[in-house]
Design a protein around this nucleic acid. Structure first.
Lengths: 147, 147
DNA sequence: CACTAACGTTAGTTGCCCTAACGTTAGACG
DNA sequence: CGTCTAACGTTAGGGCAACTAACGTTAGTG
């Protein structure tokens, strides 16, 4: 291992994340999905139907990318959009039975990746790692943690 | 914090890395540089002049992106490319005094980011975190660790 | 001499993250 | 009631990292 750049925590973090991201992306691609799709579906499952703007706020996905991703999910029949009669500016997005099923499949795939990702770590190390990442993420992105 | 996606280690990892990456990118951008530039300059400093192919192998940057990045570094006068008389397929890339200085500035900037990134952690937690990331990276990218 | 591989270049794609401009709708204010 | 600001959603695009594919030149091997 060379000294210098390779021991910068930020570099280690981004390189490890890139590898982890590839693993997850490969699993999702096998199901015809992407990371944004899963994030949106999970938000709908966990927090119920929402406007597109709310989905963007919940998931951290930029509103313009929410539009594109919801278009893809609509095409696949995984979600449905309906205008909100109470506020015609808004669509209300709901997950469909198909989408629910797809999300479950994606969740299973994502869970399997975690085991591979964290294979070299003991249970105690895993817990510590997750706690550290959570702490750092709250530090770096405080507005998300105020939820 | 919502359950589900948000507690997947891979998600925490990629979100934290994205934030860390933005911090580093902002510092480098202020110096007219990018992450690839720094990685290439550091490799030249730490391991000496090299062919483009070797630089790609050392840094993990894809050979086509090495070309593009070296073009930018050449334009800025931070590196020089000369054909290798021993093998005319190759260029030998060397860092210039300007490049050496720029790399030092970038190193200082990058180091400052690490302090911000890891601010919520104690020294012991920082060491553990770096050790864990290193272990995971070796696991996920074994060919790099054989160096 | 033919073939394979290495080297470097060019052009492009994908996904994540982001910016900008626009039209429609809602609510506040005078 | 009209004007203004903001919210919502859409469209089009960019930057960066990471990656793929095709091509021409050079080197080494059989």
């Amino acid at each position: 291992m060379v000294p210098g750049v390779d021991d910068l925590p930020s570099w280690l973090l981004t390189q490890t994340a890139a590898q982890a991201g590839r693993l997850v992306a490969a699993e999702f691609a096998a199901e015809g999905a992407r990371g944004y799709h899963y994030r949106l579906l999970r938000s709908l499952i966990d927090e119920g139907p929402a406007s597109q703007a709310d989905l963007g706020r919940r998931t951290g996905i930029h509103f313009s990318d929410v539009v594109a991703s919801l278009n893809e999910l609509t095409t696949g029949g995984w979600i449905a959009r309906t205008p909100d009669p109470a506020d015609r500016r808004r669509n209300v997005v709901t997950i469909t039975p198909t989408g629910l099923h797809r999300a479950e499949v994606l969740a299973t795939r994502a869970a399997a990746v975690q085991d591979h990702l964290l294979a070299p770590l003991s249970q105690e190390e895993r817990a510590a790692f997750v706690a550290t990442l959570t702490k750092l993420l709250h530090h770096l992105r405080p507005h998300e943690s105020e939820e």
